[in-house]
């Protein structure tokens, strides 16, 4: 089992009132799964994904990732954990405008303290795999939206994570571009055994996955 959420609650207090963002979420994810999270706007999809990605905390419940109990870990160890095993893909790509494509791809490796020569090799390898060798010295602003998201996926993959979390990865793309990205996810999932959890509004995209989780007002339905 890759990860397990047990009775997760998350809330915020506003004006003396407790508003629940996540209510009693239980979830088990096996390695190699491809899960889609769906639900109306404001139902807590992003919140859940951030909790799984350890970017956000929760108030109650247990979270086990591989053999670690995430809820008991200090920030530093948590960041080591997701640095090692998790890659993120965002709706608005979140590439750094000041860095070239190659440099954007290199960045996660820098934070993992990968050696220089190895970094070069990994970057060259992924550029090749995604067919964007010709774009490696361009800046994000010089790419189309689809190309930028391609780089975003490539960046998430470069450190060979076990789990990819994608929050509406195709939200800003046209249908043809979305299809390409979804095909890519499918291929990664089938051929490389990468676990994928994605948030999506589109039934069509959700169909690429092996399982669908529906949220409503922070609760699994």
């Amino acid at each position: 089992m890759l990860l397990q959420l047990k009775n997760i609650f998350k809330w915020v207090n506003t004006g003396g009132q407790r508003i629940f963002l996540l209510k009693d979420i239980n979830l088990e994810v096996e390695e190699g799964e491809f899960i889609s999270i769906m639900g109306p706007s404001g139902s807590g999809k992003s919140t859940l994904l951030n909790v799984i990605g350890m970017l956000d905390t929760f108030d109650e419940g247990e979270y086990h990732f591989l053999d670690e109990s995430v809820h008991t870990l200090k920030e530093k160890y948590r960041s080591n954990l997701y640095k090692e095993y998790i890659g993120f893909v965002f709706q608005s790509y979140h590439l750094l405008d000041d860095l070239t494509v190659a440099e954007n791809l290199e960045m996660p490796l820098l934070y993992k303290k990968v050696k220089g020569s190895e970094r070069k090799a990994l970057v060259a390898d992924i550029l090749d795999r995604f067919n964007i060798v010709g774009k490696k010295d361009l800046f994000p602003s010089q790419l189309s939206g689809g190309q930028q998201q391609l780089v975003g996926v490539a960046r998430a993959l470069i450190a060979s994570p076990k789990l990819i979390l994608a929050d509406e990865p195709t939200g800003n793309l046209n249908s043809q571009q979305s299809e390409e990205i979804m095909e890519l996810f499918k291929k990664l999932n089938k051929e490389n055994g990468v676990t994928i959890i994605q948030v999506t509004h589109s039934e069509k995209n959700a169909a690429y996955g092996s399982r669908i989780i529906n949220l409503l007002d922070g609760r699994k339905v």
Partner: peptide, 16 residues
């Protein structure tokens, strides 16, 4: 802000 957040999700620690 975007850069800071991005770097954090990519594994940057406060110290770095």
């Amino acid at each position: 802000l975007k850069e800071i957040g991005m770097r954090k999700t990519l594994g940057a620690q406060k110290k770095q």
